[in-house]
Amino acid sequence: MTVTSTSTADHAPPTPRKPRRAGWHGLVYVLPALALVAVFFLVPLGMTVWMSLHDWPLLGNPRWIGLANYDRMWGDAGFWNAMRFTAHYTVVVTIGLLGVAMGLALMVQSQGRAIAFYRTIYFLPVVTGFASASLLWAWLSNVDAGLFSPAAQMLGMTDRRVNLLAHFDTAFWSVTVMVVWKMAGFYMVILMSGLQSIPSDYEEAARIDGASWFQRFRWITMPLIRQPFALALVLCVSGSMLAFDQFYIILNGGPRNQTVTAVYKIFNESFVSFRLGYGSALSVVLLVILMVLSAIQLCLLRDKGAAK
């Protein structure tokens, strides 16, 4: 066999080739997802905004009132109380949840059969529905038939049975503990995936460099799990801002309407007082607040050019 050069044999310019295009068939693939987003998010969102510009009773014809529903919020003490309480709850529960989840993730990030067992145990409450967990907690907190109050008395922590749900502080912390118990496993999994993606070399290099456990956590671990942490934070904050079930089922907004959250307020306005237009306006405001908060969190936690 012989091989010869063809460079002088063919002087014709090479045939230009068009780059391949994805074409319209790509759209077909995303169409189902687009349809779902349109039907279940965009259309309801548009309807909510439309309703918020009306006086929209349950029965009877809606009446266009422009921005009057939004204007009304300024003077609605119930709205401000709900927003204040929601913000307070969000801060407390986010700190508690992410703190506990981080601790659990650090404990169960290594491999092993026993570790897998603990991971499962910590994750189990996540698969319980919020309503079921709330009913369980309501029963556990019951002053007569529950467990917490008799247990506290038996252990000598109190001299008589205390109704945990009758006072704001104990009621608030009771619900917060329930939410942390129920949701910590979920955030543990997110943070654990981040921890497991950090090469062990970094930890070892830092150990040789003499960094303490806390220094390694602060200077190496936390910056390297920035993205999963941001995801956990956004999910946690938005989830807390939308809290409703637990306060409705366990506390029914009490004591003295002190635990009415933003969504609870929307529920009351829309489905108790049947002011659907005003309820829609509250929903739109809550959505805007959530979008702004999420954008701020993602900006603050954005990975600034750290190349792997």
Binding site: A205, W219, I220
Partner: peptide, 10 residues
């Protein structure tokens, strides 16, 4: 280290 183990964010 074989992988250099340089902290990517620093």
């Amino acid at each position: 280290f074989q992988t250099y183990a340089l902290y990517p964010h620093l």
